[in-house]
Design a protein around this nucleic acid. Structure first.
Length: 207
DNA sequence: AACACGATCTACT
DNA sequence: GTAGATCGTGTTG
């Protein structure tokens, strides 16, 4: 921010939202308030490089999970072995196992020591899924399964590892929709509209 | 050591 | 719309 409110060239160059399509998102992108990171992750490209292939998909649905003040967050009651990544440095992965058969991928936000994460809930496959590629990865379990992610992929550094996110053009505000988060216990009052998705995308789990 | 349950998905009525 | 699959995790005893 500048004193006048008009972004200087330097401030603009430092803005983590600025488009650098194709390049890895850097640490400063993740080291921000969770809701802003969630919003800006829409349209970005999730990438996993393996010996076989490089899988890529466009992120179209996310949910923000704030730490200590968010009763729906795994981090609400303090760190445990499972949730430790949420309290660690930004730009890491947090993968957890649910319902005895599914994995969910999160991106860790906020500064080191402050809990926060964005759940990746839906994506549009782009490359690396073979001839019979699915048309959509709608739902966090399906997304993680399509990428072959397990708890072995938790706490990986997205800025340095083979699991990463590449920059891509920002989704326009008119195409972004918000709703309450999915699959939470009662606590309707605490279920804020922190689910963000791209209107009309096949990769969105529900509308 | 035992227990209750979950940031889900699929199949079936 | 509802039930069943299936097991790691956190909590309680």
């Amino acid at each position: 921010m500048t004193v006048s409110g008009t972004p200087s060239i330097l401030a603009k160059a430092a803005d983590p939202r600025r488009a650098r399509s194709g390049k890895r998102l850097t640490r400063d992108f993740y080291a921000r308030p969770t809701l802003k990171v969630a919003r800006d992750l829409l349209g970005k490209i999730l990438v996993l490089e393996t010996a076989d292939a490089t899988k890529t998909a466009r992120i179209v649905e996310v949910e923000a999970y704030l730490g200590g003040r968010d009763p729906a967050s795994h981090a609400y009651r303090g760190p445990t072995p499972r949730t430790a990544p949420m309290f660690g440095p930004p730009g890491r992965s947090y993968v957890y196992f649910v319902y005895g058969m599914y994995y969910c991928l999160n991106v860790v936000t906020e500064s080191d020591g402050v809990a926060g994460a964005v759940l990746l809930r839906g994506a549009e496959p782009l490359t690396g899924f073979g001839e019979i590629a699915p048309r959509a990865l709608a739902g966090p379990g399906k997304l993680a399964r399509a990428f072959g992610l397990t708890t072995k992929h938790t706490n990986l550094d997205l800025v340095r590892s083979s699991l990463t996110i590449r920059d891509a053009p920002r989704v326009t505000a008119s195409r972004v929709a918000r709703s309450a988060r999915v699959g939470l216990n009662e606590h309707a009052t605490t279920n804020k509209p922190w689910r963000l998705y791209v209107r009309g995308s096949a990769g969105v789990s529900r509308t």
